[in-house]
Nucleic acid binder design. Structure first.
Length: 127
RNA sequence: AAAGUAAAUCGCCUUAUCGAUUCUAAUUUUAGAGUAGGAAAGUCCGAACACCAUAGUGCAAUCAUAGUGGUUAACAGCCACCAGUCGCAAGGCUAGGAAAAGUGCAACAGAAAGUAUGUACAGGUAAUGCUGUAGUGAAAUCAGGUAAACUCUAUGUGGUGCAAUGCCAUGUAAACUAACGUUUGAGCGUGCACGCGCGAUUGUUAGAGGGUAGGCAGCUAAAGUUUGCUGGUAACAGUAAACGCAGAUAAAUGAUAAGGGUAUUUUGUUCUUGUUAUGAAGAGAUUCUAAAACAAGUUCAGAAUAAACAGAAUUCGGCUUAUAGAUUUGCUUAAAUA
RNA sequence: GACAAGGUGGCUGAAUGGUUAAGGCGACGGAUUGCAAAUCCGUUAUCUAUGAGUUCGAAUCUCAUCCUUGUCU
């Protein structure tokens, strides 16, 4: 798996997103919240991920776009470090909970902690 | 100088690495090219385009506009001029038709706010609110004010909006139940009238229910952008050349690092100017100098900090609002300061 | 994206262009009570989203801005 994050790996289907929020589980490491669900995909990709920022917390489109871009970048760079060997496929939704702005370094750090927690938790449940 | 005023331009840049998306090649993972604004925003006007079976007319209502002329595909925009108003001025602002067509409204105060009528003082008369002043009020005897009150005049105006609309996929579903309607006309474009015909195999309304929430087209070359020339006071028009300029859909246009430029603050430093004697002259008033100190400006170097408003969603023309900082040009200056 | 509706004290909610704006629920103080509740009396508060305009006068009319809510397939 590489650093790429193209159309196939994005979570787009409205149906799937509804299902994810209804049936999925969540991990919160402030300021991030990861909602995940184990599913299978038709097009062969193992992970589908979307990001979201509330309009209530960040009023302007510029602020929301900025945070979403940083979230995608952090996800793209950290993905191979944690999921290179996993064969099970998941749908992810990453939410940004803080009201304040952020920097790439801070977000990168918290993204790593979220994935670490996720990997620990899922491997525990398998055992 | 400073202050003001009008207009225009820019809105950090470069490189490397890792990505996103569209198109074109080859072809199955490579290469090349493109990729956000002046407001992309608000959705306030005007259009294009699409649908409302086809294609229309009149009236009314509604709504909009409102000096004159020009400009434009169109406009409530823009340009020029006139008028009013604010400003010393440059210049700014103006929903700027009609109150002698009619209806209405005017609290409190005041005698009286149109059905008019009368207090005090003065003047005047045969006599009288007959005349003036005072008093109330935004407005007072003359009529006026108000049309962002109704209204009148002139001009214009069908509705819905790309979540329009067409096709594909999915679903037993153009299915089922009730009411209304059957050529004597329900409905067909929201009020009335006319006209036109369509019309039971797919009428209208309501109920209950099934499916989808996906894809393709619409979708980006356009009343296009830049520069020059010609006409016009100008808005703008004509013409020639060059350019080919976003197309995403839980939302692309990014992230990181390095370097550079700009502004502010601060440290050191170069130079200039000013102030100060504790120095010097003198009997003294006072005068001269300025090592040092302080203040202001300035040269160079370093450090830190900061960099606005804001993100396309069918497309154009405007308007409105937000906007750190920088640059350029024209014009004005009454009073006050140097 | 396209198109609509609204904004009045802490909450709810009325108003013909005419006295810094009705009423209710609250809150506070007093009376009542052995103490409370209920009841009665009084008080409170920068209340018409913001900024302009029309008018003698604006919560009301007009324009712009801000905020909130709704509709669509």
């Amino acid at each position: 798996m590489s650093f790429k994050y193209n159309k196939k790996d994005k979570l787009k289907s409205k149906k799937l997103i509804d299902k994810l929020f209804n049936e999925g589980k969540a991990i919160t490491v402030y300021p991030l919240r990861l909602v995940y669900l184990k599913t299978d995909f038709d097009d062969g990709s193992t992970l589908k991920t979307g990001v979201s920022v509330s309009k209530k917390l960040h009023k302007t489109a510029v602020a929301r776009n900025r945070i979403k871009r940083l979230l995608r970048e952090a996800y793209r760079l950290n993905k191979p470090l944690y999921f290179n060997n996993s064969s099970t496929s998941y749908a992810f939704m990453i939410l940004y909970l803080s009201k304040d702005g952020t920097t790439f370094d801070a977000l990168n750090d918290s993204m790593k902690r979220v994935f670490k927690k996720f990997v620990d938790k899922t491997s525990d449940s398998l055992n």
